[in-house]
Every structure is written in C-alpha cells, then in structure tokens.
Simulated scan of single mutants.
Amino acid sequence: MDAATIQAMIENGLPGAQADVNGDDGVHFEAQVIATQFAGKLPLARHRLVYATLGDLMGGAIHALALKTLTPEEAAARR
C-alpha cells in the first residue's frame, strides 16, 4: 500500500475532500483530511467517515492510520 493510493481513496470516498497522506513503511500512515462532511461531527464520527472510504484495507494492508480531521473553516483558522 502507498500513500498516494490512500489519498485517492479518501478523496474519492469523500467528494470535495483534501487529503494529505504520509507513510514510508507501507503499513503505517498519517493523514490530514479536510472535508465539509466533518461539520458538526465529533472526532470519532469524522474518523469513521474516513475509515469507511478505505473499507477492508483498515487493519489489513493499512495497519495504522493516524488522522487529523478538519472542516475547511477549521483548517483556515490554523493558517
């Protein structure tokens, strides 16, 4: 598994989302995902939305995925 594939899966699964995925060993990754779909949701619900885009790869080909999930407004406030 590679970071570019995970990024594409997240962005395809959450239309309009922007994902930045990193990971050098092929099984441990970290991602920052910015999506309007996160508005009004608690962190666990946001993470579940991202995990749903990856399906059975979670816990298999993707051993670990550390997530930072933000709405576009939250991301803009951090800049």
Rank of each mutant, 00 (worst) to 15 (best):
K41Q: 14
L70K: 15
I34Q: 04
A17C: 02
Q37T: 12
R46N: 14
I34R: 05
A64H: 12
A75G: 06
G59H: 06
G23T: 00
N22R: 13
G23V: 03
E30M: 12
A3F: 03
L57T: 09
E73G: 04
Q18P: 02
Y51A: 01
A35D: 01
R78Y: 11
E11G: 00
P15T: 02
T36H: 09
I6F: 05
D20E: 14
T5E: 11
A39I: 08
D24I: 08
L54F: 00
A17P: 02
A45L: 07
T69K: 08
A4D: 12
A35N: 00
P43K: 08
T53C: 12
F29Q: 03
P43F: 05
G13V: 04
V33E: 03
I10M: 00
L49Q: 15
F29D: 01
V21C: 05
E30W: 09
F29M: 03
Y51C: 00
D56H: 01
I10P: 00
E74N: 10
D56R: 01
A45Q: 10
A75T: 01
A3L: 07
L42V: 10
V33M: 01
A17M: 02
A45F: 02
A64N: 12
P72F: 12
D24T: 11
Q7R: 15
A39K: 14
R79P: 08
A52K: 15
H63P: 08
L44P: 09
A35L: 04
Q32E: 09
A61T: 13
Y51S: 02
P72C: 09
L14V: 06
M1F: 08
I62A: 03
N22T: 12
L57A: 13
A64D: 13
L65G: 04
A4V: 14
L70R: 15
E30S: 15
A31C: 05
A52I: 09
A17E: 05
A4T: 14
K68E: 06
V21R: 06
I10V: 01
E74H: 08
A8N: 08
Q18G: 03
T53N: 01
N12G: 05
P72H: 11
Q37R: 10
L42W: 05
A45M: 07
D2L: 10
V27L: 07
G16M: 07
L70A: 10
K41F: 09
A8R: 12
I62G: 02
T69C: 13
R46K: 15
G60Y: 07
I62D: 08
T36Y: 03
I10K: 00
E30C: 14
L65C: 08
T36A: 13
G60F: 04
L49E: 15
E11H: 03
A64Q: 15
M9T: 03
G55N: 06
K68S: 11
K68H: 11
T53I: 03
N12L: 06
Q37F: 08
K41G: 01
V50D: 06
L42R: 15
D2I: 13
E73D: 14
A3M: 06
A19P: 04
N12D: 14
D2Q: 13
T5I: 11
